[in-house]
Amino acid sequence: MTREVLTEVGSLSIHRASVCLETELMPHPKKSEMSGTIQSRIATAKEELRPQAIAPHPAEGAQLAWRMAIDLVAGIGVGAAIGYGLGSLIGYLPILLAAFTLLGFAAGVNLMMRSAREFRRQQEERSCN
């Protein structure tokens, strides 16, 4: 029993060492929380040490939304411009205009997906491990 508790405490201290710096700096539990069996205390300590996802600032989310919207519109614009330019140079204006506008839309979606992926990676990094 004692051995079991000791290994449990040992693994807890390893766990405590492995969590990131912010949670490491947390104050020690108060006296009132020290009551109860050692198992329940370990459970509450583990619960306290679990890293919590930090909510992003609302302005950050708005910026991401703006970035996506502008990427999408700029994609369509650039696609249409390339299609028009190529079309008036080598002919087949309607076909090229339509094709490149669609490609531009695809490019915009591509950029949007990429910034979404980046945002998710940032979130994961932020919630440390």
Binding site: L103, A107, L111
Partner: peptide, 9 residues
């Protein structure tokens, strides 16, 4: 095309 959209946006 995405690459060329980037400076525009």
């Amino acid at each position: 095309m995405s690459y060329f959209v980037r400076p525009v946006s």
